Simulated scan of single mutants.
Amino acid sequence: MPGSGVSINALPKVSLHDHLDGGLRPATIIELAEAIDLDLPADTENDLADWFTAQATSGSLVDYLKTFDLTVAVMQTHDSLARVAREFVEDLALDGVIYGEIRWAPEQHLTAGLSLDQAVDAVQEGIEAGIDRVAQAGLVIKIGQVITAMRHADRSLEVAELAVRHRDLGVVGFDIAGAEQGFPAADHTEAFDFLARNLFPVTVHAGEADGLDSIRGALFDGRALRLGHGVRLAEDIEIGREDQDNTYVTLGPLAQWVRDREIPLELSPSSNLQTGAIAAWGDDMLDHPFDLLYQLGFRVTVNTDNRLMSGTSLSRELALLTDAFGYDLDDLEALQLNAASSAFLPLEEREELADAIVDGFANA
C-alpha cells in the first residue's frame, strides 16, 4: 500500500471507463434471472462471480464479450435498468469514487418493448436514486452517462442523436464499443459528423483488440477526445539499447501525437490482461505497458472496464498497479488528476473535481 495506514479505498477517485452491463451484483443477476425464468450457469453469488471471471479470462475480446449475453438479458425493463444503475452508483461510492461515467448501449436493451429514450430515462432514474442513497450515507458522488453505439451494428447515427437529445438530462458523452477488429470508426462517419456539428464529446474503444490503425481511425474518423483502452498505442514506441547501461525510447508519429496533445488513455489493467490486449508484451501485470506510458508522460487513467467480469474495483486496480510498479501516494494522486482533467465535464467542474482530489489526498 502507498504509505503506512493509507487505504486506497478511502482515497477520492474518478472512474471514466466502466460499463453498466459489466458491473452488476451477482445477487441481483440471480434475482432478475429468476423473474424471467433465465437459466444461470451457477446458483450462488460466489459461484456466479467465479463463473464470470473464468469465462472472461480467455485471452480474446470476442470471447470476453460473450459474458454480456447474460447480463444484458436481465436488463430489459425499466425497473431492472433503474435497479442496476442505482446499485452501480452505490457500489462506486463505496469504492471511494466521487465522479463516475457509466457507459452502456441502449440499443441492446429494447427486447421488452422499451424505446431508446425510455431506456436512457430508466438508467437516469436509477442513477439519481443511487446518488440520493449515497447522500443519505454521508457520501457525495457525481455521475454522467456515456451513451454507446455498437460498432458492428448500423444504429450509430440514431444513438448519436439520442445522446445529444439527452445532453442536459444526464448524458455527457458518446462511445462506440463491441468487437473492434474489422469494424473501424470510419464505418460510423455519419454519426461522428453529427456529433462534431453538435460539439458533443466522444470517446472510442480503440487499441484493445486491434492496433495502431484502429487508434488512428478513432482520432481522425471519430474525432475522439479520449481513447477507450488505447493500450496498443505502445506498439508505436520503440525501446532500444545504446550500450549495456543505457537505453533509448523513440515515439512513432501516432504515439507522439497522442502524448503531445494529452489525449487521455482509458487503461483497464486487469481487463487488458484478460482479453489479451497486452499479449505482445506478456501475460502478467508487470508486463503491462501502463508504467511505460505513465513514465513517458502520456495522460494515462486507471479504469475497471467491467467490474463483474474482472472481479475488481477501481481501488483494486490501483492496488495491483502499486504492487507491480511501486507507486506511491503521489503517483496515485497524479493518476486521479489525469482522470479529473479528462472527464466529460465543463472546465469549472473539472477544476472543482481536481481540488476535491487534492484535498482528499492531502488528508489521507
Score class of each variant (00 low, 15 high):
A137D: 13
P12S: 05
A27W: 07
L332F: 11
D18S: 14
A42K: 06
D284C: 09
Q76P: 04
N363L: 15
R232E: 00
H166Y: 15
E180G: 03
A122S: 11
V146W: 11
S315W: 09
N306L: 03
E180M: 04
T53N: 07
L318C: 03
V231E: 02
P12V: 08
L335P: 01
S7H: 09
E45H: 06
A105M: 07
Q256V: 05
L195M: 10
D91W: 05
G113Y: 11
F220C: 10
F192S: 01
D117F: 13
A54L: 15
W51G: 00
V164I: 09
A224R: 01
E101A: 14
R167S: 07
T71H: 01
D291Y: 14
A149M: 01
M150V: 14
P264H: 00
T304D: 08
Q118A: 14
H19L: 06
G5Q: 13
V300L: 02
A224W: 01
L139S: 08
I147S: 04
R165W: 00
Q124W: 12
D213E: 15
L254R: 14
G22S: 10
T312C: 07
V123Y: 11
L70N: 03
P253W: 03
R197M: 08
I239H: 07
E266P: 15
D18M: 09
E348W: 11
N46M: 06
M1S: 11
L345I: 04
L296I: 04
A137Q: 13
A334M: 15
A119N: 09
F194A: 04
A129I: 00
G130L: 03
G130C: 05
L61M: 15
D21N: 12
P26N: 10
H19E: 09
A343R: 07
I263C: 04
I357F: 02
S214I: 11
